[in-house]
Lab assay of single mutants.
Amino acid sequence: ELVLALYDYQEKSPREVTMKKGDILTLLNSTNKDWWKVEVNDRQGFVPASYVKKLD
């Protein structure tokens, strides 16, 4: 499943990933309501769920 980055996000820990507004990311896990695991540029990590939106 793919998600769209709604905002820029700068990683604050090694478990997170940086994304730019408009990026298309692969959603790996959305079981946590606050932090979703995504893959971007061959890196996996977490981003705030409120910063991304699922693409239909």
Rank of each mutant, 00 (worst) to 15 (best):
P48I: 02
K21L: 05
K12Y: 06
D42V: 07
V40T: 15
P14I: 11
W35S: 02
I24Y: 07
P48F: 03
W36V: 07
S13W: 06
T31E: 14
D56Q: 11
D56R: 12
E11N: 07
E39L: 12
D23T: 09
W36S: 03
Q44N: 08
K20C: 11
G45P: 00
D56Y: 13
V3L: 14
Q10S: 11
K20R: 14
V38R: 00
K20G: 04
V3C: 14
L2I: 09
K33T: 11
V40E: 03
T26M: 14
Y51C: 09
W35G: 01
K12I: 07
L6R: 06
E11K: 14
G22Y: 05
R15P: 05
P14E: 13
T18H: 05
T26S: 10
V17E: 00
W36G: 01
W36C: 04
K21I: 06
L2A: 07
D34Q: 11
M19Y: 02
T31M: 10
K54I: 14
K54W: 08
K54M: 11
V38G: 01
D8P: 06
S13Y: 07
L28C: 07
S13L: 09
I24L: 09
D8Q: 04
D56T: 12
L6V: 07
A5K: 01
A49C: 07
L25E: 00
Q44P: 05
V40S: 15
R15D: 13
Q44M: 11
S13I: 05
L28R: 06
N29E: 15
A49G: 04
G22E: 02
D8S: 09
K12L: 09
V17R: 02
I24E: 03
I24W: 05
V47A: 03
Y7F: 14
D34I: 14
L55K: 05
K54F: 10
N41G: 15
L4C: 10
E1T: 14
V38P: 01
Q10K: 13
K53H: 09
K53E: 11
K54V: 12
P14D: 12
T31R: 10
N32M: 09
F46Q: 03
L2W: 14
I24C: 06
E11C: 13
K53D: 07
D42G: 15
T18P: 07
A5P: 00
F46K: 02
R43F: 05
S50N: 12
G45C: 03
Q44F: 07
E39A: 13
A49M: 05
L6W: 04
R15S: 12
K53A: 12
N29F: 07
G45Y: 05
K12C: 11
D8W: 04
N41Q: 13
T26H: 12
A49W: 03
D42T: 10
V47H: 00
V3S: 04
K21Y: 04
L28V: 12
V52N: 00
D23P: 01
L27G: 00
K20H: 11
G22W: 07
L25S: 02
S30N: 09
E11T: 08
T31L: 10
K33H: 12
A49F: 03
L55M: 10
Q10R: 12
Y51E: 02
Y9H: 04
L55D: 04
L25D: 00
V3I: 08
D23R: 04
R15Q: 12
R43I: 07
Y7S: 08
Y51P: 01
L6P: 00
K53S: 11
V52H: 01
N29M: 09
K12R: 14
R15A: 12
A49T: 05
K12D: 06
D8F: 04
L2R: 13
I24V: 11
D56C: 14
N41E: 12
T26N: 10
L2V: 09
T18I: 03
K21G: 05
T18Y: 04
R43G: 04
Q44G: 07
L25K: 00
V52T: 04
E1N: 13
K37N: 07
T31D: 15
A5C: 12
L55Q: 05
K33S: 12
F46C: 12
D34P: 02
Q44H: 08
Y51K: 07
G45M: 05
W35E: 04
T31G: 11
W35H: 03
D8C: 06
Y51F: 13
Q44E: 10
D42M: 12
E16M: 06
D56K: 12
I24K: 06
V38H: 00
T18Q: 04
F46L: 08
V40P: 00
V3Q: 02
S50Q: 11
D42R: 11
V38M: 02
W36Y: 07
V17M: 13
E39H: 08
N29S: 13
F46A: 02
V3W: 10
L27W: 02
P48A: 02
L28K: 06
V47Q: 01
K20W: 11
Y7E: 10
K54H: 09
